[in-house]
Amino acid sequence: MNSKVDIKTKDDHGHWYDNNIDPYKGLAEIIAVTLKNSLVSQQISFVDVPYRSKTKKSFLKKIEDKLTEKDYSPESMTDLAGIRIITLIEADVQKVCELIGNMFKIHHADSVNKSEKLGEEKVGYRSVHFVCDVGDVRAQLPEFSAYKGLCFEIQVRTALEHAWAEIEHDRGYKLGGKLPSHLNRRFKLLAGLLESADLEFNRLTVEIEEYSSKIQKSIHENKLDYELTNIGLKQLFQNKYKNLELQDYELINETGNILITELNKFGLDTLSKLDKEIQKSINQYTFQSRNTILGFCRDLMMIIDITKYFEKVFLDSQPWGATDIKTYEFLTQKYKQEELEFIFDKHNIFVFEEDDE
């Protein structure tokens, strides 16, 4: 395999492809799986890690194009196995590049940063392309030994860069040639907009992380004059009320937005106001253990003023039609059973035992 032979005709090239492509198919798959596992373990966010081996049609076309320039053989082709890492933001591209450098042997002479090639005054397709092999150490592992010396290409790009590449190259629109002036201008403006959006997403991500760190520090300093947000709620319960052992998974989805809306309607629109009510209530009442943040906050609002909760919040939010006996018993710390039964009956709320679920 991969032995240097005298190949002169298209048929010769086709035979070479048929006899040599199978290892590259396996190589592309194992590299993609290895990269995906490493990204997860390093907690680097990504959209996808697709992979492919070069098709025979693409292989033959590249050979034909290259032979018009210089003497070129199939052994010179470095992208018979291709892997693409699509990240969410630009900041993660650098993390991925460092990871690749630590995992594989990079052929720097064949690798390229398309952004650097564009320079300062041009916009367009941007991506980092690495040509690698598995390296001497990894090649000693049984699962990689069959791929020793074989090259593969890894492209690293953001989701927006990927979208641009799909439009410009992979979907066959071929917009890079000569266009009428008015279309060419729109084409360049679109490229610039995508690049600007990529940079802005990256800045926003950094600023959100900085905001989260700032709130965390302020919580430790007991300075809580912040608008109520999902980030603020998570930091408050993770840092100041960690002993309540509340589950915070719902804060990352639509349920978190529902909770923020309910707290605002109740009049708790800052971390400071919420914190004061939590401190006052947990000193007065015994809350349920191992609850969710959503459940805790609803219990909090009801124990503060159950009539206000049902008038201001419940009817305007997404009404819940049932609650467990633990919530009912929790509320009896403040309200009489007759009062609770009247309110729950009025709003068609069913109280169930755990065995009834």
Rank of each mutant, 00 (worst) to 15 (best):
L263P: 01
N348V: 06
Y24Q: 07
G135N: 05
A191D: 05
S3G: 08
I7T: 09
Q279V: 12
Q288G: 09
L246S: 02
N184K: 12
V49R: 04
V123K: 06
S212I: 10
I304A: 08
A28M: 02
E221K: 15
L35P: 01
F310C: 01
I293V: 15
L27Q: 04
V40F: 09
I306S: 05
Q284D: 03
E207C: 06
L224I: 10
S272P: 07
S111E: 04
N230R: 10
R290Y: 15
S73C: 08
H169G: 11
G135P: 01
K10E: 11
Y249K: 15
I85E: 01
R52Y: 04
L259V: 02
K188Y: 12
G177Q: 02
A139F: 05
T327P: 02
S281W: 02
R157F: 02
K308H: 11
V123F: 11
R185P: 00
G295L: 08
F130D: 01
L183V: 11
Y285D: 03
T286K: 14
Y125G: 01
S127G: 07
N348A: 13
Q288D: 12
G14Q: 12
F287K: 04
N253A: 10
D22T: 13
T255P: 00
K62M: 12
K174S: 12
E329Y: 09
K105V: 03
L189S: 14
L60M: 12
K25P: 01
G14Y: 03
K188P: 00
T292F: 09
M1D: 08
A146T: 06
T270D: 07
A109T: 11
E195D: 14
G14S: 15
N230T: 07
S218A: 13
P142V: 10
E354G: 05
G101A: 05
K61L: 15
Q94H: 04
Q247K: 12
I282F: 10
N291Y: 11
F350P: 00
T78W: 09
M301A: 04
D248I: 13
F314D: 04
N184M: 08
I293N: 01
F46G: 07
L259Y: 05
K223V: 13
F46L: 03
C97S: 14
E153Y: 08
L39G: 03
N19W: 05
S317D: 07
E153Q: 06
K10V: 02
L271M: 03
D65N: 15
E262K: 05
D18Q: 06
L268P: 04
